[in-house]
Design a protein around this nucleic acid. Structure first.
Lengths: 128, 128
DNA sequence: CTTGACCCTGACATGATGTAAAGGTGCAGA
DNA sequence: TCTGCACCTTTACATCATGTCAGGGTCAAG
């Protein structure tokens, strides 16, 4: 399977497939005589795994760990679980930070009459 | 005032002060004979404004708009308000996306016994 | 054989920020 | 005055994940 087909089958862009190969996240695909990369179903399976992990917000480095755990038949499920929980906590931290910013903005916007007059508590707050 | 003092007074790193100058977010500081940049209190005030806006998650491009509104005595407060509300909405979208990922992970982790056995619903989910 | 779809590599861009190198400036103390 | 340290300058490279473009080779159908 050429890289285009692998990309369509996995949902990972050709650009990122080549990138993942370059940074060592995935092994280099075997090449045809033409130099074209050749992918198997297993390769596509792994790419889908990566795409799903990205969709859950895992960073590339974490995905490397997940891939290692995935291919390790003997690993304890607790390892995967604690990685997932740590990541969930990180996501929660980020979400709370964004939400706090949002609340601050909403509060300020509420105090701003939002008409043609120039005075504005939002800008005043940014000055302090 | 040298850039180091301006940095300490504003909370913006020297690196970023120079960067903001380079991309045109702030005007180039006047130079002494030595070539050193020279900052006024007003400059520090503007840098603090930028730092506060960054803390609220505004992107540099949005801050450019905010700075323009800030220095426009005649602008309507409604302009600032709608910019803030649009940004708050964007923050909300991002926060909800992170929270959704987090919930998915927590649900999966709950289904994972997390002991020494190798089977793990988290990895299974990533495969699909 | 031509054409169009596909593949290759390499490079540049994003956004915000850090860090490091290599060199000039300014000031205080010996 | 010399020395040393703290400060300043520019330039460049790194991060992270991704897009896009250019210049070139390959393949298959007509």
């Amino acid at each position: 399977m050429n890289i285009g087909a692998a990309s369509r089958a996995s949902g990972v862009s050709q650009r990122m497939i080549r990138h993942y190969e370059q940074i060592g996240l995935i092994p280099g695909a075997p090449r045809r005589d033409s130099g074209y990369r050749d992918y198997s179903e297993a390769d596509v399976h792994r790419l889908r795994f990566i795409a799903n992990a990205r969709d859950l917000g895992f960073a590339i480095s974490e995905i490397g760990t997940l891939l290692a755990l995935w291919s390790d038949q003997d690993r304890a499920s607790s390892e995967v679980r604690s990685l997932a929980l740590a990541h969930a906590e990180e996501l929660g931290r980020k979400a709370r930070a964004l939400e706090a910013m949002r609340q601050t903005l909403l509060t300020l916007a509420q105090q701003c009459h939002g008409d043609d007059r120039p005075d504005c508590p939002i800008l005043q707050r940014l000055e302090d």
